[in-house]
Amino acid sequence: MEFDIKTAFYLGNIPITETVVNTWIIMAVMIAFAVAAGRKFSNAAPDDDLGTFGLLTEIVVDGLNKMIASTMGEKAATFGPYIGTLFSFLLLANLSGLIGFRPPTADLNTTLAFASISFVLIQGTALRSKGIVGYFKGFFEPLWFLFPLNVVGELATPISLSFRLFGNILGGMIIMSLLYQVVPILIPAPLHIYFDIFSGVLQAFIFTMLTMVFISSAG
């Protein structure tokens, strides 16, 4: 039984893994959606009939905007587009297991990359709002000898963020494939509702939610 990430092909000497290929496919889907929606809305007059696709886009974007605005307040305008993209990507990545892909989020490289972006955003926001002196002073509070503890606490954020998503998705994947070996038919099907749909949507939501909460509390 192997859960290793397979190498799809070699680009020169660089191995291109399954994760990267699946990420490209999800990116292509998202870009196609964005281009189609952008074209629809840029040509539309205010009282035009947008059709099913247009209305669906409106519901999705409106829902994301509302969710971001309720958590981040006035910072929503700055971080909204990134957070929205992050949520859509993670959602599609987690759900891609349903159609037989290996979810890109079941690879620590993907989740650690996203957690690193979140880490940079958190530290950047803190640096901008407190200034350089205030930022470094924050590490020595409430007492100076707590400095190492504060540094470890900051570094633990991206690690716990990435491992949470990775562990949940990979754990679900492993449990499902073990189940498929024991009972190949009928029984595993309803369990996809929990391990792929419920867990996938929840973990995508939680990753974005925690990123938003950390960024808002940083500055």
Partner: peptide, 20 residues
Amino acid sequence: MLLGQAVAETTGIYSLVVAL
């Protein structure tokens, strides 16, 4: 509640990663 549960889950996920 879900946010708090996700944070509480971290230790469990660490143990899962160690086991894996």
